[in-house]
Amino acid sequence: MKKIAWTILFLGAFTLSYAQSDYYNDYRRSVTDVNWGAVAADLLLSSTQVKQLNALNDRYADYNTWLRVYGDSPDRWRADRYSEIERILGNDKYVKFKNKYYKGQNPVAVYNRNKNNDKKYKHIDKKSKAVHMNNGKDHKH
């Protein structure tokens, strides 16, 4: 019985840390997938704004520093990060940033939409639709 309890506890902890590391990976991509030098040049940012963006991008350099802040609510990083970017850029430049780098969509919504988008299982959905369609055709009288 103790072995089962320890196994469940271990698997629960592993699953939680795995899910949190997925959130951290999204966070890191939000930093690394954007050419911040190009953002600064495109939006004509001041040196103060560039320094603030660099400080924001360097805030959580590793998983442990990020986890201390977001361990209890790992999805909160999105709203925090993009409201801070909006504060730094100002509303007008933030809208231009969103339009260019997120196709006009709210970056928070982009990451929320992608967080459960597990590519490993996409093929199953396609197969189940194909089977369902074939079954429907087979039952015609």
Rank of each mutant, 00 (worst) to 15 (best):
Y94N: 06
D138P: 00
L9G: 10
Y60M: 07
N35C: 03
K126L: 14
W36D: 12
N134R: 07
G104R: 00
W66H: 01
Y70A: 02
R87C: 07
R76A: 14
M133L: 10
V69F: 09
T15V: 10
R59P: 04
N35Y: 00
V39N: 05
G12Y: 08
K127E: 03
D80T: 03
R78H: 05
K127V: 11
K126F: 13
A130M: 06
Q52M: 11
H141D: 05
V34T: 14
D92S: 15
N112L: 10
I8C: 13
H141E: 09
K120V: 13
W77S: 02
S83Y: 03
R81F: 14
Q52L: 14
N99Y: 08
D125V: 14
Y60R: 03
K126N: 06
R78D: 00
R29Y: 13
K140Q: 11
Y63K: 02
K96R: 12
L45D: 04
N57Q: 08
A5C: 07
H132E: 13
E84Y: 09
K98A: 08
V50M: 07
Y23K: 01
N112H: 04
V95P: 01
N106L: 03
F10T: 15
T15G: 11
M133I: 09
Y111T: 03
K93M: 11
N117H: 12
S83R: 10
D42Y: 04
P107Q: 08
R81G: 01
A61R: 14
A109M: 04
D22H: 08
V39Y: 06
S83K: 05
N116P: 00
D75Q: 12
K51F: 05
K115W: 05
H139L: 11
M1C: 10
Y101W: 15
D118C: 03
L56E: 10
S73L: 12
N64D: 07
E86G: 14
Y23R: 01
L89Y: 08
A38H: 01
